[in-house]
Simulated scan of single mutants.
Amino acid sequence: MEDLLKPDYGVLVLTVCNFLLLVYLLKKFAWNLIIGGLEKREQQIADDKKQAQDARAAAETLKQELDAKLAQISEEASKRMAEAVKIGEKQKEQILSAAKEQSDRLLAQAKAQIEAEKNKALADVRGEIARTAVLAASKVVQQQMSEQSAKSVVDRVLEEIKAK
């Protein structure tokens, strides 16, 4: 076991020579390819980052434009709503005014019609009173009666009028 712990200088020299040869060969043939690949990959990552930042900036600009358009559309919609409300109020006022005018006109017509009917009824009542008075007077004159018989004749005439 002691032999295992003692270094073998021949193997050590060969291992160092092999390592140096490997480093030389890697540097000669592979190192430039590996470094070139890493640099290419680093450049690609940088380009991808730049494209992502450009895309993010473009998306942000587009978002701002869309927000501005949305605000403009919202403002225009608010204006149109306000205009529609104003138009609705004007139409409401016009309709109410027309309805008031029509109701005033109908009220005036109704009053005139009532007044005409009242006058006609009064004329009919006056005519009926006049006919009754004439009829009663003619009966009183024809009979030359006493006061009691005149009252009975007037009562009879009034009963006839009520019956009609």
Results as ranks from 00 to 15, higher is better:
Thr61Ala: 14
Thr15Ala: 12
Ala112Lys: 05
Lys92Ser: 10
Asp8Ser: 06
Ala77Trp: 05
Asp54Tyr: 04
Glu147Lys: 03
Thr132Ser: 04
Lys79Tyr: 06
Ala130Arg: 07
Gln102Glu: 15
Val154Ser: 04
Ala77Leu: 14
Ile45Gln: 09
Ile87Asp: 11
Gln53Trp: 11
Gly37Ile: 09
Lys28Trp: 07
Glu159Cys: 00
Gly37His: 09
Gln142Leu: 10
Glu42Gln: 10
Gln142Trp: 06
Val154Met: 08
Gln94Tyr: 09
Ile34His: 14
Ile129Trp: 07
Ala110Val: 07
Glu160Met: 03
Leu5Pro: 01
Lys111Val: 11
Asp124Lys: 12
Gln102Asp: 15
Glu115Cys: 07
Leu62Glu: 15
Arg105Ile: 05
Lys120Gln: 11
Glu160Ala: 05
Ser78Arg: 13
Ala163Leu: 02
Val140Gln: 02
Leu70Met: 01
Gln72Asp: 10
Ala108Trp: 05
Met145Asp: 06
Ile95Pro: 01
Leu21Ile: 01
Ser146Tyr: 02
Leu70Arg: 04
Ile73Gln: 08
Pro7Asp: 14
Gln94Trp: 06
Arg131Gln: 14
Lys6His: 04
Ser138Ala: 10
Lys100Leu: 12
Lys162Leu: 15
Lys111His: 12
Arg56Tyr: 06
Ala57Leu: 10
Arg105Tyr: 14
Leu20Met: 13
Asp8Leu: 07
Arg126Asp: 15
Lys79Trp: 03
Tyr24His: 13
Ala163Tyr: 02
Ala46Cys: 05
Ile73Trp: 07
Leu22Ser: 14
Met145Asn: 09
Ala52Pro: 01
Lys92Trp: 07
Gln44Lys: 15
Ile73Asn: 08
Asp155Ala: 10
Leu106Ala: 10
Glu2Gly: 05
Glu42Val: 08
Gly10Asn: 08
Lys120Cys: 05
Arg80Gly: 02
Glu83Met: 04
Ile95His: 11
Gln44His: 08
Arg80Gln: 15
Lys162Met: 07
Glu128Pro: 00
Gln72Met: 07
Leu62Ser: 13
Ser146Thr: 13
Ser97Asp: 13
Lys162Thr: 11
Ala71Gly: 05
Leu26Ala: 07
Ala121Ser: 05
Val125Ile: 15
Glu75Phe: 10
Arg131Asn: 11
Gln64Val: 09
Gln64Ser: 07
Ser103Arg: 13
Gly127Thr: 02
Asn119Ala: 13
Leu20Pro: 00
Thr61Ser: 04
Leu70Phe: 11
Gln142Asn: 08
Asn18His: 06
Lys111Ala: 13
Ala46Lys: 15
Ser152Ile: 08
Gln43Leu: 03
Asp3Lys: 15
Leu26His: 03
Ala71Phe: 03
Gln44Pro: 00
